[in-house]
Each structure stands twice: as C-alpha cells, then as structure tokens.
C-alpha cells in the first residue's frame, strides 16, 4: 500500500491540517508520500520533510500551481495517483475544491471528511450535520479521501523525509487568478486554536466583537462567529463556525450570544469543554454546554476579560 497526501500550504508555510491528514494516512498504513504543489515553496518543503511518518516529499514548483487552481492541481494529482492505493487531502476549502475532480477523473467515488479510519478500505464520516455517523467501505481501486482535521491528532515533526522535485507542469488553461483578500490576524487560526470564543447575533454589531477580542487576548484564543453574525456583517466569512463554515474542536469553546442551531453545533460540538453565555435560559446551546451562564453578554464578557 502506498498513500499520497496532498499538503496544504500558502507557499510560505505549511498549514497544520496537513499534520492531521498525515496521521490519518499513517493509521491506514503503508508508505506515505507528501505532494507539495505551489510556487517558490522551498521553505515549505523543508518544513514538510520533518513530518514524522512521511517517506518522500514530492515538490511541484511552478507558477501554474501558485494559487492552487483546482483544474491544474487535480490534473497533477490524477497523474501521480496511478502509483498509489490512497490519495488523501485535508478537508479545507482547498482540498474540497480539487479532490472531487481527482476522483471523477479516476472514475472513483470520493469519501468526504472522514473522522476515523476503521481499516484500509473502511472509514467513518459524519452526515446530516453530524447528526449521524456513517461507516462506509470503498471497493474502488484508488481511494480518494478528504480528512476532517479534528478527527485526528497532529503528526509529530521529528522525521527526515527526502525531498524530490517533480517537473510535471499540468496547466488546464481554464481559469486564472484575479485577486485575494485574506484576513490579517496575529491570532491562532480557528482550526488549530486550543481556545475559541465565538459571537453570534446577540453581539449586536461588529464593534462589539472587540469585547470578545479582549477575552481572546487573555487566553491566546481565536475568535469565531455564527452564520447569523457573519450574515449581519459583524464578522468576516472566514470566521464562520458550523456545518457550512469551519469545523473546530478546541479544548475550550466559548459561545457568546449564540442560540445553538444544529448547523452551528455541527461545527463545534466535538470541543472538549463548551461554555455558553446567553441571556435566554431556554437557548438550545445550554443543552450541549458543560458550563452555562445565563446573563447579559454586555455584563458578563467584560467581567470575564477582567477576571482572567
């Protein structure tokens, strides 16, 4: 068995989700190679070579891969896939973008967002916003899989893989990059933070999110939001936690002014400890919270920031 893992990175550094995906690959068993496709990504290759469990880092460094265009990346992965029994990518927006193209070209099904490896061909994945867990078996010749990072621990980084460069250039010529507006933040990313404090519609406006940031500063936490808060313009889209936003499982998740709709719970209910602050004691969020505080957030949150 031989497994190809696709690295998630921004040409400058490796994203943590890659480490969780390698762990899933190691659990399946066999030889694990990592594909790094990007432009001027040498520094990332050095980082990737240290991931324990990885045998070779295959680097495809070319401008056609600079922005991870799905059409180009999927062609590259499809060509390489012939040598592997499994192809794994993190279930990030990037992995979700190109992996189904790989599967369709190989004429195999994709198994989306696995959270556990049962055997070499059998995996668990949540469906219906996490309200049911399906165990699925794949009979396909190549298993194309995306991995939900919260289901697996991060691989350690004390390995020494060999780095090999690929000279394959696969340019579909179908799309081009125009621009990017990325959030600038010194805080930890939502999907890797140990503590997250999220605000919902109850926050009332975008400047009130500062209240959450004061708590986040004290705890080294990331700040998240419900869809209602994002839709209302209180927070940018990349902060949305939930079924259709980011899936998180920190040690501590503090939900402030969030009612606890199933779509929101789907994104955070695997957190170790959940705290809810809400003025409505009937809010469904209290049904999943380890510690609930029925209070006005405009009193409770500043007090919390003070007492930390």
């Amino acid at each position: 068995m031989s497994i190809l893992v696709i690295a998630e990175h921004d040409n400058g550094s490796l994203k943590d989700e890659t480490l969780n995906t390698v762990t899933a690959a190691v659990q399946i068993g066999g030889n694990v190679d990592l594909l790094l496709a990007g432009e001027n990504c040498n520094a990332v290759a050095e980082q990737a070579a240290k991931i324990s469990g990885v045998n070779r880092v295959l680097v495809a460094d070319h401008s056609v891969y600079a922005h991870q265009l799905a059409e180009n990346i999927s062609l590259l992965v499809t060509e390489l896939a012939a040598d592997y029994s499994h192809v794994l990518a993190p279930a990030t927006t990037n992995g979700k973008n190109f992996m189904p193209r790989v599967a369709a070209t190989l004429d195999v099904s994709q198994i989306s967002e696995i959270t556990a490896v049962v055997s070499v061909d059998t995996f668990k994945r949540p469906i219906y916003a996490g309200n049911a867990i399906a165990t699925v078996q794949s009979m396909d010749k190549v298993k194309v899989i995306t991995v939900r990072a919260t289901g697996f621990d991060a691989a350690a980084c004390d390995g020494s893989a060999t780095i090999e460069s690929l000279d394959k250039v696969t340019d579909a010529g179908l799309s081009s990059f125009v621009k990017e507006e990325l959030a600038q933040s010194d805080r930890p990313g939502l999907t890797s933070a140990k503590v997250i404090i999220s605000g919902g519609r109850g926050m009332g406006n975008s400047s009130n999110f500062n209240l959450l940031e004061q708590v986040a500063d004290k705890l080294g936490a990331a700040v998240g939001a419900s869809r209602a808060a994002v839709d209302a313009g209180y927070a940018p889209n990349d902060m949305q936690v939930g079924q259709t936003g980011k899936i998180v499982a920190p040690d501590l998740y503090i939900a402030v002014g969030i009612s606890g709709a199933i779509q929101h719970l789907a994104g955070m209910k695997d957190s170790k400890v959940i705290v809810a602050i809400n003025k409505d004691e009937e809010a469904p969020i209290f049904q999943v919270a380890d510690f609930g505080l029925v209070d006005d957030l405009f009193d409770a949150v500043p007090e919390l920031a003070h007492s930390l």
Binding site: A134, M139, L293
Partner: peptide, 25 residues
C-alpha cells in the same frame, strides 16, 4: 464503489451545569 455499512448516532453531549456568576465560571 462505495457501500454504507452502518449509520450510527453520534455520541450525545449531555447538558452540564449552570453557573451563577462569571467568578464561578
């Protein structure tokens, strides 16, 4: 090429406790 072997309920979280104040929290 896929077969669903089993569909289970996820582990349910049970409600915890209500705290009376920020200090207690």
């Amino acid at each position: 090429g896929l077969k669903t072997l089993l569909v289970e309920s996820p582990q349910e979280r049970s409600a915890g406790v209500l705290v009376g104040s920020v200090g207690e929290l």
